[in-house]
Computed example of a mutant assay.
Amino acid sequence: MLIEVGRSLPRRWVASATVAGAVAAVGLTGVVPAAAAQVTTAVSCSANPGALQPAITAASPGDTLLVSGTCTGPFTINKNLTLRGVSRAVLDGNQAGSTVTVGSGAQVLLDRLVLTHGSAASAGGGIRNEGTLTVTNSAVRDNTAPSGAGGGIHNLGTLTVVSSTVSANYSLGAGGGINNNGYLTVRSSSVFGNSGDNGGGIFNYLAGQTVALIQSSVHHNTARVSDGGGLLNYQGEMTVSGSTVYSNTATFGGGIWNGGTLTATRSTVLLNTATGGPGSGGGIYKAGGTVALDRSVVRSNTPDNCAPPGSVLGCTG
């Protein structure tokens, strides 16, 4: 059973210190005033765990906040902003909603941060993104969506994850690690140890919604109820390039469950397990759509590498 918030799907699935560098032109006839300078502001949560949200609210679009300590949220960002951690600062959602919510139209960079202890009733325990969000050198871990999708991240916009980890997140619905309803790129990152009803690691939903997994790993994730231990591509487009999908578990499609368009290039799918018996696709289960293997290997999966038999060209055993 795939669980996606608010939708009914076939196959019993339901899916859910300030530094300024401004130079002003004063008294010069005909000179166009310079644009407002971008400001970098230090925000310490060591003495005041609640200091960050007021700083976000007070910041001007384009500013950078240098964050230190453990900041207690949750946090909402509705403007163009950079949050950069000092010594791996922690953003703690305090089990009171998505740790970070990025509003529609906002362009946000989260760098060198740990995002944890979010608990969203609907979707997106660690992050709920409706804008354009880049997460770099960060960890999204130990978040939950107890009645919806996207334990770690729920993406409704454009999301890029670089040199980061998404781990130990839990969702009652689809996408224990990441639930994608938009455009997702994961590069040089790891998605591991997550658990969802379906799509334990990453779930990609409808046609036109895309996932690009580049030089990354998806491992030790679990689909507790049914499909797609590592990756589940329902009707969307998913490309796996230079990546490894291993040691994931589901009833069908231990490594990958596909119903959309899946292309794997120079990648490996191995040591995954499907518990649905013979024909349940330990490595890849092709429920529909297309699967193309380009210089990729599917091996040592249990009980089989690809299912149904003969459905994936170039995959045997």
Results as ranks from 00 to 15, higher is better:
T239A: 05
T239E: 01
T239V: 09
T239R: 05
T239Y: 05
V240H: 06
V240A: 03
G242I: 09
V245E: 02
Y246E: 12
Y246N: 14
N248H: 08
T249D: 00
T249N: 11
A250R: 01
T251D: 06
T251W: 00
T251Q: 12
G254Y: 01
G254L: 05
G254N: 01
G254S: 03
G255D: 10
I256K: 00
I256E: 04
W257V: 00
N258M: 07
G259Q: 05
G259P: 05
G259W: 02
G260R: 02
G260F: 02
G260N: 09
T261H: 13
T261K: 14
L262M: 05
L262E: 01
T263N: 06
T263I: 04
A264G: 06
T265Q: 11
T265D: 01
T265L: 00
T265R: 15
R266I: 02
R266N: 15
S267N: 04
S267I: 01
S267V: 00
T268F: 06
T268H: 09
V269Q: 05
V269I: 15
V269R: 00
L270Q: 12
L270R: 14
L271M: 13
N272L: 10
A274S: 15
A274R: 06
A274M: 09
T275A: 06
G276I: 08
G277A: 13
G277I: 11
P278Y: 10
G279V: 08
G279P: 10
G279F: 03
S280Q: 11
S280D: 05
S280G: 08
G281E: 03
G281M: 05
G282M: 04
G282T: 02
G282E: 04
G282H: 00
G283T: 07
G283K: 05
K286T: 08
K286Q: 15
K286W: 06
K286H: 07
K286P: 02
A287L: 13
A287F: 08
A287R: 13
A287P: 06
G288F: 10
G289L: 03
T290D: 09
T290V: 14
V291E: 03
A292I: 14
L293Y: 08
D294F: 13
D294M: 11
D294N: 15
R295A: 12
R295Q: 15
S296N: 03
V297P: 07
V297Q: 10
V297Y: 10
V298D: 03
V298H: 04
V298R: 01
R299S: 15
R299M: 14
R299C: 11
R299N: 15
S300M: 14
S300T: 15
N301V: 06
